[in-house]
Amino acid sequence: MDPIVEVVALVLGFLGWVMVGIALPNRYWRTSTVDGNVITTSTIYENLWMSCATDSTGVHNCREFPSLLALSGYIQASRALMICSIVLGTFGLVAALIGIQCSKAGGENYVLKGRIAGTAGVLFILQGICTMVSVSWYAFNITQDFFDPFFIGTKYEIGEGLYIGWCSAVLAIAGGVCLTCSCTSGTQEKYPLPYQTRGTVYSGAAPTRSVAASTYGRNAYV
């Protein structure tokens, strides 16, 4: 594997990990604007942890969700998946820093470094999958309620936090695929084995016919 490709994959995985950390506390996972006169116009926005509201006068108020068990199942699952994504990305970054060829942390054993790089790639892919499932599941529930004509509650729209999560998932999966491919190319030794001959070959001029004839018939023990 080209070391440049490994470095690019490491950068992609790092950016995906950073964007997960940005998307998780972002307050704009879903937003809703209630139009009215100047006083009653307000914007409601929520994420996995709290619900906030602000009006046209600049008054801003947030409250955390009071009970974990009272939340919807998809919100609880999204929380768990996002936390798992950050943990997997952290282990993936550590493994990638050890496994890439330009790093001296893993010594000169390129077979072992290739396997570690492949493990880091798998961790990045799992990180991207967890993030993708979390934000997509959350977005599915938003669109389902929005287009349901019998839904009487507040109808929300997709916020910027979900877009950040989608970008993070794509970057993490792309970086993980590159590092996983480096696992197969890193299983071969970089140094060739010494060549060993099976016998000793002596070079020299072949004996002439006269010499061979003169020695013919002599006692071999003389």
Rank of each mutant, 00 (worst) to 15 (best):
K104C: 08
V133P: 06
A80I: 06
I125K: 10
L112E: 04
T90C: 02
G99T: 00
I86C: 10
A95Y: 07
C84F: 11
T119Q: 08
G99D: 00
Y110Q: 14
G89L: 02
A96K: 03
K113R: 15
Q101S: 12
K113Q: 10
C84P: 02
M132G: 15
G92R: 03
K104H: 11
K104I: 04
M132N: 14
K104A: 08
G107P: 06
A120V: 01
M82Q: 11
C130P: 06
A120P: 01
I100H: 04
T119F: 15
L97R: 00
I129R: 05
R79P: 06
G89K: 01
Y110P: 06
R115Q: 14
T131N: 14
L112G: 00
N109G: 07
C102R: 08
A80M: 08
T131M: 15
Q101W: 08
L112Q: 09
I83E: 04
I86T: 14
L112D: 02
Y110L: 12
E108S: 11
I125D: 12
K113A: 09
I86Y: 10
V122E: 09
L81H: 12
A105T: 07
L112S: 07
A80F: 13
K104W: 02
L126P: 12
L123C: 09
K104Q: 10
I100Q: 04
M132L: 15
G118N: 04
A120D: 03
R79D: 10
A95Q: 04
A80E: 10
M132Y: 15
G118M: 06
C102T: 11
C130K: 07
V133E: 13
T119Y: 14
I100V: 13
G121N: 03
C130V: 08
I100A: 06
I129P: 12
E108M: 05
I83L: 05
V122H: 06
V133F: 13
I129H: 12
K104L: 13
A95I: 01
S85E: 07
A80C: 09
I100L: 07
G121L: 09
G118D: 03
F124M: 13
G99P: 03
I125A: 13
